[in-house]
Structures are given as structure tokens and as C-alpha cells.
């Protein structure tokens, strides 16, 4: 790879690999007006000009660039991150006794709930999945992807994160408008058609949130519900992570059912640690956690689905009353 890129002109390289621009920028190497110079010469000139301030050698810069290009190419090779199924193989409870299941398979497009008292090991189970445990975590569990021992890239690569996480207390902190922010995210994900993707995310987010926002709204001034709606739409559409963890989003002020449908429509595996009955019953199965282990796997029954329908009616009524309060109306 190094040999392949070093004698190309910068212009040719950026033509083939537009994403390499962030690498030059990250190392403060200015490429403007130098498109017809070879990569190796641009690096050598840069290092010479920096003199004693040079942080790296031209060789190191080349090596890094080659690594960056390879990683990005891997990232773009779609088939590599297709996760169709996830398998959990048993480990032990906190007291060392074995877990009593043989193999739990979760397929893409499926929602699973994780329930259990505080300290029981819910977060550890989610961490086992994120780290694709191979008997090397405190639980001794093994996680397989597509029935196979997974590639180690899932552990360390920033571009191949297995798990995207949505949790209650997250905020936006960047000083950008919704549109600018989504463009930046789309570019970092190397999305093909940035402006289309941005429009799609904003539409979906507005469908989830009660009150809609404009593309020019600063992300830091979104309401709690709008922020979460935007985070969910963005995660569903832009995140490449095949698994989404949802950690307690009960008071979200968004349409939870639609949010879940959006995530599932993108063929993700959704795992929720929640004790919210509406969310819990939306899942097809529940993993019951106690003493550090998975005690049981419960299928959501028909009777429970009837309860879910009742809850959904109550939920809508609550939302409706809340909206009327907001508009200054009487509730009687």
C-alpha cells in the first residue's frame, strides 16, 4: 500500500480516496496548490519546512496515511460488517455457578430486553457483547457473531464499532446547527449522498418528536425530546454499528414505538436495559438477570401483548394531556 500511494500525486490520491483529506488535515499538511506534487514529496517538504518542530518523519507520515486508507477501505467494504446474528454462550454467575442455558441466538431486526435488579449484571452483559467476550471477562461468557469467533477489529477499531449506545443523559455539546452537525457526521461515516441522508434524518426525527425543528436550529437548543429523536434517527440511519444498546429512555418525550420501528427497519439488533413496561413488552424476548448470570429467557406472551395495547392507549392519553397542558388548555 505504501508503495502504491507514495509516488501518486496528491491530486490523484485525493481523487481516488477523498477521505484521505482528513489525514492531511489532522497532521497539518497543507495540500492546497500542491495537487500535482507526489505524496512523498509533499511529506518530505512538510517535514523539511517544519525543521525542529517536525513531529514525525516523512516515512512515518506515509505509513500512517497508508494505514488510514486501508482502514477506510475496510470500513467501506460493506459485507464485512454485516452481522446477521449474535450468539451468547454461557459463563458463570457471580458465585461461580454455571449459567443455565446453552446458547442464546439473537437475529438482526430483533429486540431483546434485559431486566434485573440493580447490581445484577445487566451492564456487564452489555459490556460482554460490546467487547465480544471470548471467555476473558469476569463472567466467562463467549459471544459469537454469525456463528463464528469474531474478528478482533470489533474490539479496537474506531471505524468498526459493534455497538452504538443511546442513553438517558446524553447531550449535544457541539456548537453547530442540526444540518451542519448531520453533514459532519455523514462525512465521517463516508456516506455517499450526504444531503439526502441529512434530509432523511431530519424528517424521521421530526416524525418521532412531538414538536418539529428546522435544519437551521442549533443542536444545543433542541428540547430533550427533540434531541433524543434526532439521536435515534441519526443512529438508525447513519451509524454503521449493527447493534444498538438502549439504556433506560423512558421519559423521552418521543414516540417510543416509532423509534423502535425505525431502528429495526435498519436491520439492527436492539438490546434494551429497561424496566419500562411499554418498552419491555415491545421486545420479543426478555433476558432475566440475577447474581451476574442470565437466569431465564422469557418470550413475550399473547396476554402480555394485550397489556401492551392497553398501555399504548394510556401512553397516548398521557402524551395528549401533556401536549394540552403545554398549549395552556384545560384538561377537563
Amino acid at each position: 500500500m505504501i508503495n502504491e500511494i507514495k509516488n501518486q500525486t496528491v491530486g490523484a490520491l485525493l481523487g481516488t480516496y477523498p477521505f484521505a483529506a482528513v489525514y492531511f488535515d489532522g497532521h497539518h499538511v497543507d495540500t492546497k496548490g500542491r495537487e500535482s506534487v507526489t505524496v512523498v514529496d509533499v511529506f518530505s517538504d512538510f517535514v523539511t519546512a517544519a525543521g525542529e518542530d517536525a513531529v514525525t518523519t516523512a516515512d512515518e507520515l506515509l505509513e500512517g496515511l497508508s494505514e488510514h486508507v486501508q482502514q477506510m477501505l475496510l470500513f467501506l467494504a460493506d459485507d464485512l460488517d454485516t452481522v446477521r446474528s449474535l450468539n451468547l454462550l454461557p459463563g458463570t454467575h457471580k458465585d461461580g455457578t454455571p449459567e443455565n442455558f446453552t446458547n442464546i441466538t439473537i437475529n438482526s431486526g430483533e429486540t431483546i430486553c434485559i431486566v434485573g435488579p440493580t447490581g445484577s449484571g445487566k451492564s456487564r452483559l452489555l459490556a460482554d457483547i460490546e467487547w465480544v467476550a471470548q471467555g476473558d471477562t469476569p463472567t466467562g461468557r463467549t459471544v459469537l457473531l454469525n456463528d463464528q469467533v469474531p474478528d478482533r477489529k470489533w474490539r479496537f477499531s474506531p471505524t468498526h464499532k459493534l455497538v452504538a449506545q443511546l442513553s438517558q443523559n446524553m447531550n449535544f455539546v457541539m456548537d453547530l446547527t442540526v444540518e451542519e452537525f448531520l453533514e459532519m457526521h455523514a462525512e465521517s461515516r463516508l456516506a455517499d449522498n450526504v444531503s439526502d441522508v441529512v434530509v432523511r434524518i431530519i424528517d424521521q426525527a421530526n416524525a418521532l418528536a412531538g414538536e418539529s425543528f428546522a435544519p437551521t436550529t442549533p443542536i444545543t437548543s433542541l428540547s430533550g425530546g427533540q434531541s433524543r429523536a434526532l439521536m435515534i434517527a441519526d443512529t438508525a440511519i447513519l451509524s454503521r454499528s449493527p447493534i444498538v444498546l438502549i439504556d433506560e429512555i423512558e421519559n423521552a418525550g418521543i414516540d417510543r414505538q416509532k423509534a423502535l420501528e425505525l431502528l429495526l427497519s435498519e436491520e439492527k439488533i436492539v438490546l434494551m436495559a429497561t424496566h419500562d413496561p411499554v418498552l419491555a413488552l415491545m421486545g420479543g424476548r426478555r433476558l432475566i438477570i440475577a447474581n451476574g448470570g442470565i437466569e431465564a429467557v422469557i418470550e413475550t406472551t399473547e396476554a402480555e401483548r394485550v397489556i401492551l395495547k392497553e398501555l399504548a392507549v394510556m401512553d397516548r392519553r398521557m402524551t395528549d394531556l401533556r401536549n394540552r397542558l403545554r398549549r395552556g388548555e384545560r384538561l377537563e
Partner: peptide, 13 residues
């Protein structure tokens, strides 16, 4: 824990 999933992804990239 205090930023959005998207911001984490951009920062890591």
C-alpha cells in the same frame, strides 16, 4: 456518557 452517539463517532474518527 455526556455526549451523543453521533458526536462520539465523529470524535473517534
Amino acid at each position: 456518557d455526556i455526549v451523543s452517539q453521533a458526536e462520539r463517532e465523529v470524535f473517534a474518527s
